[in-house]
């Protein structure tokens, strides 16, 4: 059985092909202006990559902010269920999933069966999402990747007063004018976003093991700051941005099995 999970995020669309419980292909492309067309194109591209056609796919399941406009999706899932399912597949002892995407952040607490017990979402405000680090990287005139690496070389703790991404941008510029080393500013940025994510986690309650997923988990500076704030090990899977699409593909497979045995 081949199932496909599509995670139509605010910035990127991610796709995972699952064959009998094994990932056989993944793909990512910018969401662009027409998310519908972008997911169609990504689907065809990934099919070609593994030498399959549309008819080989048993079922498509969508998730993410643009989940309702994914063509051909039989099931439409919230990010919370998809992220939880994907994370527990990768590491069965995970009880807390932290997902930080381009435009939102969420903390999910689940039980040993992978059932979601509680979650908190932070959206509609760029502070606490990838949009925050992106805006700060622009202000510092470094790439996102550099921002993360720079942060690791600092041990200073410079407080950031601004919470809002717009105001924080000006603060970063004043810090630069005051000749604050770039690496210390980078660390301040990651400490700030980590503390926001932390407070969300405290609201749902943190149980180990903790897994961090979503595109922002690629940012090594943020991961470091979050580990320090959490005072616990935070696991980051190899492909953190694909956990949502993986979860969607897994749930699609689960549901096919349920239907078949019902």
């Amino acid at each position: 059985m081949i199932t496909v999970g599509i995670d139509a995020g605010a910035k990127n669309i991610k796709i995972t092909f699952l064959k009998d419980g094994e990932v056989i292909a993944t793909g990512i492309s910018p969401s662009g202006f027409d998310q519908n067309a972008a997911s169609e194109a990504l689907m065809n591209e990934t099919l070609a990559k593994v030498g399959l056609t549309h008819s080989d796919v048993d079922v498509i399941c969508s998730t993410g902010a643009g989940r309702k406009v994914v063509p051909g999706a039989k099931h439409v899932l919230t990010e919370v269920s998809a992220m939880a399912r994907g994370s527990l597949f990768l590491r069965p002892d995970v009880r807390t999933v932290i997902d930080v995407g381009a435009e939102e952040g969420r903390a999910i607490r689940c039980n040993e069966a992978g059932k979601v017990e509680d979650f908190a979402v932070n959206e509609k405000c760029a502070a606490g999402s990838g949009a925050f680090t992106e805006a700060m990287a622009r202000a510092l005139e470094v790439s996102l990747e550099e921002l993360g690496k720079l942060s690791l070389t600092s041990s200073a703790s410079v407080p950031m007063n601004a919470q809002c991404a717009v105001f924080a941008e000006s603060e970063v510029i004043s810090l630069l004018h005051a000749s604050t080393p770039k690496q210390d500013i980078a660390k301040a940025i990651h400490d700030a976003i980590a503390s926001r994510i932390m407070s969300m986690c405290r609201r749902v309650g943190i149980n180990p093991a903790i897994m961090l997923v979503g595109g922002v988990a690629r940012n090594v500076g943020f991961v470091q700051s979050l580990r320090t704030a959490m005072e616990e090990e935070v696991f980051v899977p190899d492909n953190p941005e694909f956990v949502g699409s993986l979860g969607a593909a897994l749930i699609a497979a689960d549901r096919e099995v349920e239907t078949a045995t019902a």
Partner: peptide
């Protein structure tokens, strides 16, 4: 003064979801 912009975060431990 320095806590006014972060009350949501600072109060979080006293306001668990459940």
């Amino acid at each position: 003064q320095d806590k006014r912009k972060s009350v949501k975060y600072d109060c979080a431990p006293c306001k668990p979801v459940t």
